[in-house]
């Protein structure tokens, strides 16, 4: 199987509002793909279409070569977490997993294993979901997705509500899953949640895919961040040298030129640089903000 998930020209319209606008992508085995975009960009709608919960207006989405609704026992093939709070608040954590295991045809031992994996104590597992903290719910939320030992994971904002330790735990979990040959699609509105773990990024804004590619590819094209004692002089020097330059919201100077070009321009102008670095996470963050700000519904990412 070459592509674990294939999405082709997927569109979802609600009367006048287009939630998902002609998106296409494919995911290969053994990869983690970050599905990034501001709130309301269409990530959740796209994921609901992929898992057969929302009918698309046009286009197709297949998982393991089939429309989701045609998978005979989907829990055994695709692990899905769309909303960790979408569970009956009156059930205990253990009961939620036991029901899932029952549908999938799995034994009780698997439930204990999953509780152990997501780090819920037997005492916590006996409590009703209504009494869980957001972080506990989120941890429990990932367990049904892993329960059936699937090949593909589709996770909508799985890190939402997790503390830094929890996010770290989630990263390790997903990395391990992909290393074993599994495929992960996880969405987030926060770049730093996914950039460490993702091999590929799909940036979505206002229903449209703005950029997609491997993380390395996207990083390579994102230029240089610099600063000087006299920041405005640096901007002028760069522009004088024919290099694009602007001041970022964080007060640095950003240029699409290489670090070497920026450094030379500063040297020629006799400026003291206080900062000079190629695009890293922060560079990608700024790119993410830029790429999505014109396409997000709020105008800028909140």
């Amino acid at each position: 199987m070459d592509h674990m998930i294939t999405v082709q020209n997927l569109t979802k319209r609600y009367e006048s509002f287009t939630a998902v606008d002609d998106i296409s992508f494919t995911l290969s085995p053994g990869t983690v793909t970050g599905f990034l975009g501001p709130n309301g960009a269409g990530k959740s709608t796209a994921m609901r279409i992929m898992t057969g919960l929302t009918p698309p207006t046009s286009g197709t989405a297949t998982i393991l070569g089939k429309p989701y609704a045609e998978l005979p026992n989907p829990g055994r093939q695709v692990g899905v977490l769309l909303d960790a709070s979408a569970q009956h608040a009156g059930r205990t954590g253990r009961e939620v997993l036991a029901l899932g295991a029952m549908v999938m045809g799995l034994g009780k031992a698997r439930v204990d294993e999953m509780l152990d994996l997501v780090g819920l104590t037997p005492d916590e597992a006996r409590r009703r979901l209504g009494h869980y903290s957001l972080g506990m719910r989120q941890r429990l939320g990932i367990a049904p997705a892993l329960l059936g030992d699937p090949e593909v994971l589709v996770l909508d904002e799985p890190a939402n509500g997790l503390d830094p330790q929890g996010i770290h735990w989630m990263r390790g979990l997903l990395k391990g899953f992909a290393e074993q040959g599994g495929t992960v699609l996880l969405s987030s509105h926060l770049l730093h949640e996914v950039e460490v773990v993702a091999d590929q990024l799909i940036l979505i804004g206002r229903g449209r895919i703005v950029r997609q590619g491997s993380k390395a590819e996207l990083l390579a094209g994102s230029g240089t961040t610099a600063n000087a004692l006299d920041r405005d002089a640096l901007v002028m020097a760069l522009q004088h040298a024919g290099l694009a330059a602007d001041v970022t919201p964080s007060g640095s100077v950003r240029s699409s030129a290489t670090t070497e070009e920026v450094s030379r321009a500063a040297l020629d102008a006799g400026l003291v640089l206080t900062e000079l670095r190629g695009a890293d996470g922060a560079g990608l963050e700024e790119m993410f903000l830029q790429l999505t700000s014109s396409d997000s519904r709020e105008g800028a990412v909140a």
């Binding site: 090949e151 979990l173 990395k175």
Partner: peptide, 8 residues
């Protein structure tokens, strides 16, 4: 460990 998580 995360080794329990693997495609079948």
């Amino acid at each position: 460990t995360t080794t329990t998580v693997h495609p079948p």
